[in-house]
Design a protein around this nucleic acid. Structure first.
Length: 261
DNA sequence: TGCTATGTTCTCCT
DNA sequence: GAGGAGAACATAGC
């Protein structure tokens, strides 16, 4: 369920488990049709190098070093990075397998094949080339208010546009709007400045909490939407009912009582 | 069996 | 031309 907190948790996993180990091989896994993976030459570029640092921007995780190539991973809807030790078997649906010295392996698991792995030279150049907006945890309040204050679409759709701001997806946009008490179809450019600043503050607070619990939803507060994000559940805040609607082609969950237009 | 899904990208429309 | 809405993508899980 990879949005910003999930990707930050993945970055931490790489940081803890895979740094400073020489890469011995990078091999494709099973059934790798319809998924973008580095080709033979790109995989070969990684061999012999070590990952000495990690980064994250929005939903992209990077691992690399000052002198070598970088690997960037996008988890799509179902991707996950799983470190394990030989001779354990790789997880099901492993699409890329990196073997480090010391019998440590890293599997990129991606059952629905909507993620990708690329080998790049520089994360900053990559972020610019992909036209990603500022990261949701570092964007300033003024930039946030300026960006969304001039967007004509529904606030939920706008928050998920990665070129405006990177890191928020369907799940966390629902949580943010739930906590601020905004209907997901409210037009972004019709929100007051105060409301936009409140959105920014709340977004930072909930993302920090999500990162602190490493995206383990069972450790989120009971009165948040995510643990109650199911149609017909009772709203944990006001006793209303959680309902769903299609907004910008995706299913939004929200309270019918405290999130009205 | 059929529907839904937390991702991005492409096409069509305004 | 720019921005926005909706369909399409592949496949697991309910």
């Amino acid at each position: 369920m990879p949005e910003l907190p999930e990707n930050e948790a993945q970055r931490l996993t790489l940081e803890r488990e895979c740094l400073n180990r020489t890469i011995q091989s990078v091999e494709p896994g099973d059934d790798v049709t319809h998924i973008e993976l580095p080709g033979d030459n790109e995989r070969a570029r990684l061999v012999g190098h070590q990952f000495t640092e990690t980064r994250r921007h929005g939903k992209n995780v990077f691992a690399g070093s000052k002198t070598g190539p970088w690997m960037t991973v996008h988890l799509g809807m179902s991707g996950w990075l799983i470190p394990f030790d030989a001779p354990d078997d790789p997880p099901d649906h492993t699409k890329l397998l990196i073997t480090f010295e010391g019998d440590r392996l890293l599997a990129f698991r991606c059952p629905r094949k909507l993620g990708h792995v690329r080998v790049i030279d520089d994360p900053d150049e990559y972020i610019a080339a992909e036209k990603l907006g500022p990261d949701a945890l570092t964007i300033g309040s003024e930039k946030f208010a300026e960006t969304f204050g001039e967007t004509r679409s529904a606030i939920k759709s706008a928050l998920m546009k990665q070129d405006k701001m990177a890191g928020i997806g369907n799940l966390w946009s629902d949580e943010l709007l739930f906590q601020v008490g905004l209907h997901p179809e409210e037009r972004a450019d019709e929100l007051s400045q105060d409301c936009l600043y409140e959105l920014h503050d709340t977004m930072r607070r909930i993302l920090k909490k999500g990162v602190a619990v490493e995206a383990d939803y069972s450790r989120l507060p009971d009165d948040w939407l995510i643990p109650n994000r199911k149609k017909s559940d009772e709203c944990p805040r006001c006793g209303g009912t959680i309902i769903s609607a299609k907004v910008g082609g995706r299913t939004a969950y929200f309270c019918d009582k405290h999130q009205t237009k």
